[in-house]
Amino acid sequence: MRESLRRLTSDELVTRTMGGKRRVRVELLDGEHINVDIDRKARGADLLDRVCEDLDVLERDYFGLLHQQRGDPRVWVDLNRRLSKTFRNEPWDVRLAVKFYPPEPSELRDDVSRYQISLAVRRDLMEGRLTCSTITYALLASYILQAELGDSTGHLAPTALSDYRAAPLHAVTPDMGERARELHARHKGQTPAEAELNYLENAKKLPLYGAELHCARDSEEVDIVLAVCASGVSVYRDGVLMNRFPWAKITKISYNKKSYTLKLRPSEFDAFETQLSFKLPSTRACKKLWRCSVEHHIFFRRESPVKVERIAGFPRLGSRRISCRRTLRQMRADPPLPREIVA
């Protein structure tokens, strides 16, 4: 009986065979869900394009799709792979997310893309991947209030900050709420698009803005966090920045089993290249970090996507499939597709 109910729920709510199609349940950045019917042989890129079309997002290359795999809730869907090979079992559940955060939000040309990226930053703050001081929480919250409510009326409901996901619950205090209300009053006249841009312009200054975090250990077996972002790879210990390696300084990124290695070009005081290795909890985690690093390097540093070849001597080192359709330079050179005007 229980198995029958489980099968019935799965068939009705999420993935159903409909003439070679599958129904995918997509969680959006605002927490809402939509169902997308897509061909069973479609690739991850096809699904991402369908979701972006439904949301009217033009600058799609900043975005990606997350799914859960073996207990890890943040595994990126391979855009070049068939969905039927990615999802071995039903249901097909994915979550829209920002994969590459724009280092300069002011360069975004699409208001809808900017809005979706601001939702992603709000989600990062709410889920604890991004943290800041109480003063910064209040400043960011004030721009959300301006975007959502318009000009201040001098009164703010006690639950407004939580209702609009302006700040995580642990940061909401009477003092912070009062400070956010005061700052909100100063933003009079700003349109929602202007408020969202100002929100991102302040959020981009946070140390972990747009960073993918990976738990690891250094050569002394000390627990650290490796943060991969637009500028490079950073090392944090107990929340404190210990070292930063810009992409321009990194000459090679590799992994072997649980070992992740960065090779750094020599400085003016060094005669040889420096090689740093970090230990990850598993081979799967190490491969995930390597892939994240390579994709970020390609997107933010390269003129165009490049094919990543297998390393000689390591015939079974893992997949070299990279999900990066266009680089940031290509996006800046090519304007987004014009939005259709419906009469």
Rank of each mutant, 00 (worst) to 15 (best):
L47S: 01
P305S: 01
K205C: 09
T9C: 14
V98E: 05
F299N: 12
W290S: 06
C286A: 12
V24Y: 13
R332Y: 04
K204F: 03
L280K: 07
M331C: 05
F100I: 12
L213I: 15
D163K: 13
K287L: 14
Y260W: 00
R325A: 05
L183I: 07
S293P: 14
M242F: 11
L226Q: 08
G210M: 11
D93V: 12
A157V: 02
L264D: 00
D54A: 15
L264E: 08
I135E: 15
S219M: 05
D78C: 08
K279F: 03
G210N: 09
F100K: 01
R291V: 13
R16M: 09
S293A: 15
Y143M: 08
V94P: 11
A343G: 04
E3L: 11
L156P: 07
H187T: 01
I322L: 15
A138P: 07
V294L: 13
L317F: 13
P305D: 00
E268S: 04
A141R: 14
I250E: 01
V26G: 12
D124W: 00
R43N: 11
L55C: 11
N202K: 07
K252D: 14
E104W: 00
T191N: 13
V75Q: 14
T251K: 13
A180F: 13
Q68R: 10
R179G: 04
R301V: 09
A166G: 13
D61P: 01
S106V: 06
L226S: 13
R25H: 11
A171L: 12
K307H: 08
P192G: 01
P103V: 02
A185D: 06
A160R: 04
E178A: 15
A141V: 01
E273L: 03
D175W: 07
Q69D: 09
T153I: 08
G232Y: 09
L328V: 09
S277G: 00
L206F: 05
R2S: 10
D110F: 07
K204W: 03
I34V: 15
R25G: 08
V233W: 04
L28I: 12
P246F: 09
Q68E: 06
G210S: 09
V240L: 12
R186M: 11
R265K: 11
E295A: 15
W92C: 05
Y236C: 07
V306Y: 07
T136F: 04
G318Y: 12
R291H: 14
R40I: 07
S84A: 08
G71T: 10
V57D: 10
P336V: 03
L262E: 03
